[in-house]
Simulated assay, not measured.
Amino acid sequence: MKYKSTLFYILLFIFSISLYGCSTDKSELNEISLVVGMGIDKMSSDNSFVVTLEIINPNSTKDGNNGLKKENNSIIQTSTGNSIFDAIQNFSKNSSALLDFSHAKVIILSKELCESQSGVSEVMDYLNRNRQIRSTNWILISNKPAKEILKGKILNEASISNGINTMMSLFERSGSIVPMTINNFIIESKKESNSAFAPVIDIEKSKDSTAPRITVEKMAIFKNNRLIGILTSEESKNFFWMADYTKGHTDIFPLKSAKNNINITASVFKQSTQIIPHLTEEGFNMEIRCKGSAFIEQAENIDISPEDVSRFEYAIESVLKDELNKLITKSQKNLDTDFIGFSTKIYNNYPKKWFNIKKNWDKIFPNMKYEISFEIKLTNIGIIKDPVMRNEEETTK
């Protein structure tokens, strides 16, 4: 009986401590600011950093469906400092709440910052060292000041950072733009080419609405941690063929049918890409093998014969080959940056040979020869063999 009584008081003591701990944690939650997005700008006048945070609004009210309202669900705060750490520390001058970055989704870096002499070296060092910031956060480059992006709006999204996160997740599954996390950006920058890439985010005025809209249509190219160029929308759309960790798809329009010269739209989905280095007496040359599947999205008033299938496949392959050739030519002749990854493939397959040519790579790469091949298969021909509707010329025959 004595032991049972002692055990009872011990359990009661432990239970009371746990209740105290829970109540303490509960009160501390009211003193925490949950950061969901961060923008970083750099002032050219004094090299100071401007950090903008999107913070979940603790005063957000709920609607009748027990969900947060789609408006005023976040607040934007800005701070300046001599370094990123200093700027973040200065947030405490205007607020007693403790900043929590563990829920952050996106990091937006301004173009001006990325083009500065030090580039993104200091930024990436800070992001990599901060234990609260996850390496899976998305990195995006802004044509405008980063704080302007975070002050924007995305339709049906209470938080712009959550909206951008959704966009990047969709791109990751099968998009025309290659999304980039902090971890992948660092990995790319440490490869043999010393290059990296990230999506470009921008705000454009919409013709259909008074509110500006967020767009992600281009890719930014880095060399030695500094922004050196931005691909066009068309070049960016075809870049996913050269990225190792993305699937991606692109739309091709127009394709010409065998009859009446009618336009056809096709969606092409990447299945695989192999970049194979070959060592010859003259040096290295590259073989690029791309495989994918295609779906006809729109074909007006035509019957698709087996001959048409072969013709469409060849036409798609020709278009993709031409576009990818333009992209590689730009990397060699315009940007002089191996962001397509030739050097990494040579290192992986011929490590000893790579060390012999590494010092002269900047001279070798612009003149390196390559061969591109595409293998595209149309996979949805059997769904609709005949046209849904016929035009007047066909019905009178």
Rank of each mutant, 00 (worst) to 15 (best):
P212L: 05
E204K: 01
I203Q: 02
A211G: 05
A196Y: 08
K151I: 15
K218N: 05
A196K: 05
I201M: 01
P179L: 11
I186S: 03
I201F: 07
A198V: 15
V216N: 03
L155M: 09
K207L: 10
D202F: 15
N156E: 08
P199Y: 04
E157Y: 03
P212D: 13
I228T: 03
N224E: 14
N224T: 01
S206V: 06
N184M: 04
K151F: 06
S195K: 02
P212R: 10
V178F: 09
A211D: 06
E217W: 10
A158T: 00
S174I: 03
L150T: 10
L140A: 08
I221D: 00
N225M: 03
A198R: 04
A196V: 06
S169K: 15
K153S: 11
M180A: 11
N143M: 04
S174D: 14
N225K: 11
N165S: 09
I177M: 06
L170T: 05
T181H: 07
I221Q: 00
D202K: 12
K191W: 13
V200E: 13
V178C: 11
P145F: 00
I201Y: 06
E192T: 14
N156A: 14
I139N: 09
I177F: 13
T181K: 08
N137I: 00
I186H: 11
R213F: 13
K147Q: 09
T166V: 14
S195M: 08
S159D: 00
N143D: 03
E157C: 07
S169H: 15
T215L: 05
K190R: 09
K207A: 07
N225C: 13
L140G: 02
N224L: 06
S193K: 10
I154H: 13
M180I: 11
L227A: 07
F197S: 00
A158P: 02
L155Y: 00
I141H: 00
I139T: 08
M180K: 11
S159Y: 07
I203V: 10
T166L: 02
